[in-house]
Design a protein around this nucleic acid. Structure first.
Lengths: 161, 161
DNA sequence: GTGATTGCAAACCTTTTGCACGCCA
DNA sequence: TGGCGTGCAAAAGGTTTGCAATCAC
């Protein structure tokens, strides 16, 4: 009966599995379920810890491999990061990223102007484009407030005062 | 005399070092020099191999740490990647990235419309923005041509024919 | 002279790979 | 039943850290 109650939100997942000839396993279902609830671009390890709570026997590899599989079939996005562990983005709606070069945090934001950007013709001729995103780099509010924060554009401010 | 000949292109680098109280070491100069000649977003390891040719004693760590230092002072960009080694972008001019989800290649392109995008007011209020970049995700021409390439939007195309 | 920088080595973290067993279709 | 998927373990790859020696200022 659990299965029937859950079938609703699992539908798009089941469909996609069928489409790509992926077997429907309890592990994959659990990972999908938690993924849809996830906020803030979880890493494979974070997902592992969450899923492990209701699926104690699951291995990290399964979670990691499953997430990669999900990425391949377009169920999640893999977020480019600057060196740290891979991050997955379950939010497939249009949104953009602000990346803090200080703490590494990635903050989502939405913006219609960015959404409506056209993709240049000469790109479309040669490339198949799946997604488009504006990425801002800088310093987030939290880091800006930190004592001793050195603004890149204001180096040696102390010396010049 | 070598030093005098080279002082020209090193000038902006020397200035920046002074600005941030960084000591000017032969290692840093060599890395900077090669970095400015680099194409295609080198990794720390690639930079290490190149610099090593004219500076056989240099260690990987020095190259890696120096590149991170350069990134901190805004001399290079760190390119977000999806899992592989960190990549550095010495091209600070406005440009945008196409990322191939198949081979991982990052292709630069320029686009005026993208360059002229404004940054939303509500972002500017809370965040300090250093750079803005449009990132496209998809499949590059090389991968598209590969035999057996599966279009994400056309799974099971063989079965449906 | 002094503190930043370098080179070396080990530690650490994450991802990848190989393989036997088990489960879904 | 057959083959994909899982779990375990080891390996690989890349980055970070600690420290002593060295070098720029």
């Amino acid at each position: 009966m659990q299965k029937q109650k859950m079938s609703g939100y699992l539908d798009p997942f089941l469909e996609l599995c069928k489409k790509f000839d992926l077997k429907i396993t309890p592990q994959r279902c659990a990972i999908y379920k938690r993924l849809m609830q996830a906020k803030n671009h979880p890493t494979a390890d974070q997902m592992f810890r969450v899923v492990k709570r209701e699926f104690p026997n699951i291995s990290f590899d399964t979670v990691n491999r499953t997430l990669m599989t999900f990425a391949e079939i377009g169920l999640v996005d893999v977020i480019p990061t600057e060196g740290g562990p891979r991050r997955f983005d379950p939010d497939l709606d249009k949104h953009h990223h602000f990346h803090c070069i200080h703490c590494g945090e990635i903050v989502d934001f939405t913006n219609e102007e960015f959404d409506n950007l056209g993709i240049p013709e000469h790109i479309l001729e040669d490339f198949t484009v799946y997604s488009k995103r504006v990425v801002l780099n800088g310093v987030c509010p939290k880091c800006r407030k930190k004592k001793g924060f050195k603004d890149r554009n204001n180096a040696k401010q102390n010396k010049n005062t």
